[in-house]
Structure formats: C-alpha cells, structure tokens
Amino acid sequence: CHSECLGNCSQPDDPTKCVACRNFYLDGRCVETCPPPYYHFQDWRCVNFSFCQDLHHKCKNSRRQGCHQYVIHNNKCIPECPSGYTMNSSNLLCTPCLGPCPKVCHLLEGEKTIDSVTSAQELRGCTVINGSLIINIRGGNNLAAELEANLGLIEEISGYLKIRRSYALVSLSFFRKLRLIRGETLEIGNYSFYALDNQNLRQLWDWSKHNLTITQGKLFFHYNPKLCLSEIHKMEEVSGTKGRQERNDIALKTNGDQASCENELLKFSYIRTSFDKILLRWEPYWPPDFRDLLGFMLFYKEAPYQNVTEFDGQDACGSNSWTVVDIDPPLRSNDPKSQNHPGWLMRGLKPWTQYAIFVKTLVTFSDERRTYGAKSDIIYVQTDATNPSVPLDPISVSNSSSQIILKWKPPSDPNGNITHYLVFWERQAEDSELFELDYCLKGLKLPSRTWSPPFESEDSQKHNQSEYEDSAGECCSCPKTDSQILKELEESSFRKTFEDYLHNVVFVPRKT
C-alpha cells in the first residue's frame, strides 16, 4: 500500500485506493498535508475557505447554543480562536489581540433580562453583547459592586439597553466600559436606550469621564423622579442622539420631579488639616426662599486615587461607600458681607490618608415646582503625618564578641513616609551569675543571650482551647457569634421535631 494509506488498500502504491488515510483526505486521495488554498479540518480532512465560511455563517444565523462559528488559524479551520487571539470578521482569520481579548457573548432569543446578581454573573467577562440587555433589578445585597464585577467589562451592545423598574439602582456607572450601543435591534418605538419607572436612579454616568455613542435609535425617559433633566440632556449631547427624540420621548413632568437638581456650584473657602482632623468651610448658599434650606450634607471617604465619582458603590438597598454628615444651616444675616460661612470639623480620621470630599445642599421643593440647590466639586484632601507606631517583631542576635545583629519589621501604621529608623542602645553591667558559677561542674549549661522565638506554653494553649472559665478566673470563653447562636437554635429545633416524629412513629394507638 501507499505510504499515506492506513489499515489496508485495494490497489498497491495508489493513494486513492486506501481504506483510511494516515494524515489527511483531499478529493478522494490521501495526502501528507493540505496544500494551499485548503485548510486542515478536524485533523483528517482538507477543506477550502468557502466550506469553513459556510459553517461560520450557519452557526451565526441559527443562534443555536453550542454550535461553533468556525475560524481560520495556522492553516486550520477550527471552532474558535485560541487564547490571546480574536477573529477578523472580513476573512475569519485569528489575529493577536492588542491588550485583553474581546469576548463576544451571543444571547438566546436576542435579549437577556438581568433581574438578579445570579443572572448578571452569566455575563461575567463579556466585552461584546450580541443582542439586547434588559435591566430589571428590584433589590439585593452589595448590588453596585456585584454588577460592576460582572457587567463592568461590557464595551458594546449590538441591540438596545433597557432599564425598567430597577428600584435598587442609583447610577449606571457599573457599566464602566460601555462605549457603544449599535441599535441594530430596537425596542418598540425605535428606541435604543429605554429608561422607565426607576424610582431611585439619580445618575446615568459621570459624563466628564465617560463617552457613549448610540449609532441608531432614540432615547426614552419616563417616570424617573430623581433623575434630573440636565442629566438626560447631557446624554443626548454626548451620545449623538440630540435631535432624534420626539416631543413625548422625554417626559418633562415625570423626570426629576422629586430630585434636588443642583444648578449652582458650592466653593470651599477654608481648608485646614491635622493628622486626624480636617476643618472645612464653604461659601454660604440661600435659595430664593431661605426657609427652603434644610441644611447641608457632607460626604467623605478614603480615596487612594483621584478618580472618585459621587455615586460609586451606591445602591438604593443601603450600600453606600460614603460617610454622610448632616449639618444645620448657619444663622442668616441681613448683611451679605457678614454672612457666616458654614463648615464642619471632621474628626477621627487616619493620618497621612487622602480623602475625597464634597458637600451639597438639602432643600425642600418650592411652590413653583422649581428645584434649587448647590453642590461642590469633589475635592481631595490629605491629612498630615504623625509619629508612626512601633516597629514590629524586633530580633537581636550576637554573632561574635563585638557585634549584635538587630532586625525588625516595619510598623503596622507608618502614618507617613518613613525615611529612617533611630536605634538606641545602652551598655549593661555583666551578670554576677557568670562569676559565681563553678565551671568545672559536669552538665553545666552556660547562660545564653542568643534570641529564641517566643512560644506559647501548654497552660496558655489549654486556656485558649477551654470553653469555660478556669477556677483562677484568668480566662473566659469568647462570646458566641450570631451565626453560632442561630445554628444552635436550628439544631435544637431539629432535635425537638425529630423526637416528636419518633414518638408518633414508635407509639401507635392500640386498636379498641
């Protein structure tokens, strides 16, 4: 048989008469490798580009789960590009990614509803959504962080984005990388972005840091009482949809009607710091009717980097990364020049730590249904340095008659930039024990000054392991946590139920 035959053949030295091919099969003959313009397919066939392209389009058009959109890589027609490569849609070739590779997620039936953290986790790592997304989240724990972890990498949506009755959302900033909504599939009414009845939605994105392009379709905003109209108009300008909307697409009466839409800028007039305090004062603000001013709200939190936005980490279910302080308005003076500047002394802060701070007014709604208010920009203030805590785990070892090696770990709280350490030492008198000992005694162990690591005695271990207080009263049991108490109650309830079950099964009433 021919060298490319495997198993047997019907005619000697003829690659077209093989029972099976050793390498690849091409047009009725066995070959060692697939010549151009053919590609290896499933490690035994040679196919042309049209064959591989037909497989790709067949799966793409069917949208069946589990099928493969075949691509070409290293002269092979394979189910998908290997790690580190992405497909070129024009020629199906796998090309190296520039940075992290995109991950295209194809949605069944063309859309997916995100109504819980669990459903959001199914899209973790996706960068391109081939379909439409509907966000409908009523509640949950730590929602802002969970949504950002699972949806934060999405850069492109081919269909539309719909935010509907998501009472738990305060902001859409968890879509931190969303840059493009194509609108290839539109919501009824030709809408590519749809926001309806979101009672706590206050911000779409921080438009000073976020760009969003909507290729096709219109915007729809109705019944978002805490979303200011200025935020919607800003989205029109940034996304390129200005002029597409009709009169009733953006409701003037049901958007922002319960919001404090600040239209003035508060400026800080005085800032002073110490290692654990920050004193702030800002310019006074009074609405047209000074009785509408209820006070100020001061927001602050630790910020290692200057990239904080107002609604980071917030949701309507209680999660809030900001510390909020309510401040009463100052006494009002008739003389504008003698107006008191409101302020606040922030206490209990960490030394040498940068804080993000902003302040906003708290006002009631005027009778004319106009909203007044003022808010400052987010500023960054760093507390002063102070003395560091003591170095940890000092170790001293003498390696000769004239040297001592000293080692330690950095302090747990540096409280500033540590530039150097101060080492103090003092000579001590020799131990009298060394002169009084009889060095001729056998088995004498000389006193040693070398360091030995501390260890816990058996008594201390027994005390720590004991669940009861000892007789001397030195140790006591740790208080039980809520989960331990709940577990004990469940076990007790189970024992009672099981005992009742045994009584009912074992003891049967005697027939009379």
Rank of each mutant, 00 (worst) to 15 (best):
N142W: 04
G313Y: 05
A144N: 03
W207N: 04
I163L: 03
T127Y: 11
F193Q: 00
S401M: 05
M346Y: 01
G140A: 15
F296V: 04
V325C: 14
N142D: 10
K375L: 14
K407L: 04
S333E: 14
Q258P: 10
T213K: 06
S401A: 14
L133F: 04
A195N: 12
I250H: 06
V104P: 04
Y355K: 00
I114G: 00
F290T: 05
D326C: 03
L266S: 01
L227M: 11
V104W: 14
F175S: 00
E155D: 06
L107F: 08
S319C: 10
L212Q: 05
R281C: 15
G295N: 11
L293Y: 03
S333Q: 13
Y191C: 04
D377S: 09
Y285P: 02
T241H: 09
C317L: 10
G140H: 14
R281M: 09
F193C: 02
T273G: 04
S208N: 10
F311T: 12
K242T: 06
R332Y: 05
P284F: 09
P411V: 10
E264G: 06
N387I: 09
R347W: 12
H233L: 02
S396I: 04
N340A: 07
S389L: 09
T215K: 04
D312F: 13
R281I: 14
L298T: 02
E122K: 02
G295M: 15
K407H: 03
Y285S: 09
N387D: 03
S239Y: 04
T185Q: 09
L265K: 13
H233I: 13
D377Q: 05
F299L: 10
Q203G: 03
T215C: 10
G159K: 01
E264K: 04
F193R: 00
W408H: 00
K267R: 11
N334M: 07
E302T: 09
S119P: 04
V381P: 06
F358Y: 09
P336R: 04
E246P: 13
L180N: 04
A251Y: 11
T371L: 13
E109I: 06
Q121W: 02
V238Q: 10
G348H: 05
D206S: 06
W286N: 09
A374V: 05
L331H: 09
